[in-house]
Design a protein around this nucleic acid. Structure first.
Lengths: 206, 206
DNA sequence: GTATATTAACTAATACAATTAGTTTGTCAA
DNA sequence: TTGACAAACTAATTGTATTAGTTAATATAC
C-alpha cells in the first residue's frame, strides 16, 4: 500500500477545504491534511504548491460553489425579493462552510484571473438583479458593493463575536437589508436613472 | 547593555502594533518584534504571554484607540450627519492602522471582559446617535449592527481586493450609507417607534 | 549603606511547521 | 517488455513558538 496512485489534486483540495470548515482556516496545516489522507507531508507537493496555494484553492472553490447557490436562490424571483433570497443563501453558505468562505475573502494578488473571474460571476449575478430595479450602471455598482458589504459585514462581525446583545442576528440582517432596499427604490422612484444624493464627506462643489 | 531594564509591556505592544500595521498582521512574528526591540525572543515572555496574547492586545489597543476618534468625529453633529462623520473616521482609522483594525476583528473568547467593554463603548456611542433619530431600543440595535456591518464590510472587501471595478470605493460607501439612512428615517417618519417592515425570510405569521 | 527580593534580560533545548532535494516504486503506453 | 512518468517516500534544512533554568541589574527593606 505504498506507492500506488490514490490521490489527485481535486481530492486534496476538497479534503483540505473540509478540514478548514471543521477546524477553522487558521488551524489548517499540511500536517493535518497529510494525516487525513494517510500520506506524508512532502507527498502533498505532488498535487499542490504549498500551504499558501492550498488556501487560495480553497477560496477559489468557495467562490465557485457559492455562485450557483446564489443563482438558484434568485431564480424565479425579482427585485428586492430576489436580493433577500440571495442574502439568505449567502449567509447559509458562510455558516455551513466557514473555512471556504473565509479563504475566499483573502487578499488576492491583483493578477489572479481565476479568482477575479469567480468573483465577477457573483457580481454579475447581483448586477443583473439590480438592473431590473431600474438602476443605472453606476448605481448598480454602488448597490452591489453595498449589498455585498452589508452581508459580508454581518457574517464577519458575527464570526468575530462582535454581536454581544441578545437580539437575533439574522433578524438584524433582514432589517438592515430592508432599510437599504427602501432607500434604493425610493431614490429610483423619485428620480429614475439620475442620482439625487451626493453625500460624499467632501462635497464635489463647495 | 545587557540586563538593564529598557522595556515595558506597553512599549512591546505598541511596537508590535506598528509592525502589524506596516507589514500585515499575518507577518507579525515574535522574531520580528524581538528584532525590532533588539532583544531575544524569549525575553518577550517577560512582558506578554505569547503570540496569541500579543495579537489580542493589539486588537484591544485598536478598539480603545478607535472609540475616541469616532466620538470626536460625532461631536457637534446630529443624526445621519453624525453617522456619516463617524463612518468616515472609521474607514480613516482602518486604512491608517490595518494591523490594529484586523486584530480587533479576531474571534474573541466569549468571556473576555476587556474586549467586550472596549467594543461596547463603540456600540454605545452609535446607539446614542441613533436614539436621537427617534429609533426605539430594538431598532437601535438593528441599526447599529447594520451600520457597523456596512462599514466593516466595505473595509474588509476592499482589503481583500474584492472591488475590481474602477469606481471610487469611498463614493460607494457614501452612497450605500445614504440609502441605508434613507430607509431608516423613512420608516421612522411613517410609523415612529413601531416596526412596519417584517422582512424575515420566514414570515412570523404564515 | 548593605542585604534581599524582584525584574528582565540571557542561553539552551524542545517541538512542530513548511519546504526542498533526492530516491524509489508502481502504472501506463509505445 | 520496457521505458517514461507520476506519486509516493526518506532525509535534511529552516524558521517558528515555547519552556526551563540562569544571571545580572535594579529597587526596596532594614
Amino acid at each position: 500500500m505504498a506507492k500506488t496512485r490514490r490521490l489527485d489534486r481535486v481530492r486534496v483540495i476538497a479534503v483540505a477545504a473540509d478540514l478548514a470548515d471543521e477546524r477553522g482556516l487558521e488551524a489548517l496545516t499540511l500536517a493535518a491534511v497529510a494525516k487525513e489522507l494517510n500520506i506524508r507531508i512532502p507527498s502533498l507537493y505532488n498535487h499542490i504548491d504549498g500551504l499558501a496555494a492550498l488556501r487560495r484553492e480553497i477560496g477559489l472553490l468557495g467562490l465557485r460553489d457559492l455562485e450557483p447557490q446564489l443563482a438558484r436562490a434568485a431564480a424565479g424571483r425579482q427585485g428586492t425579493e430576489a436580493l433577500r433570497a440571495v442574502a439568505h443563501a449567502y449567509t447559509l453558505y458562510a455558516n455551513a462552510h466557514p473555512g471556504r468562505y473565509l479563504a475566499a475573502q483573502r487578499p488576492a494578488s491583483a493578477s489572479d484571473p481565476e479568482l477575479a473571474l469567480a468573483g465577477a460571476a457573483i457580481v454579475d449575478l447581483l448586477r443583473s438583479i439590480l438592473k431590473s430595479l431600474g438602476l443605472n450602471a453606476r448605481d448598480q455598482i454602488h448597490a452591489v458593493r453595498g449589498f455585498r458589504a452589508l452581508i459580508h459585514g454581518f457574517i464577519s462581525l458575527q464570526a468575530a463575536g462582535g454581536f454581544g446583545l441578545p437580539v437575533e442576528v439574522e433578524q438584524s440582517l433582514d432589517r438592515a437589508l430592508a432599510w437599504f432596499f427602501e432607500g434604493l427604490v425610493l431614490q429610483n422612484r423619485q428620480r429614475p436613472r439620475r442620482n439625487k444624493y451626493r453625500l460624499a464627506i467632501r462635497p464635489k462643489r463647495p
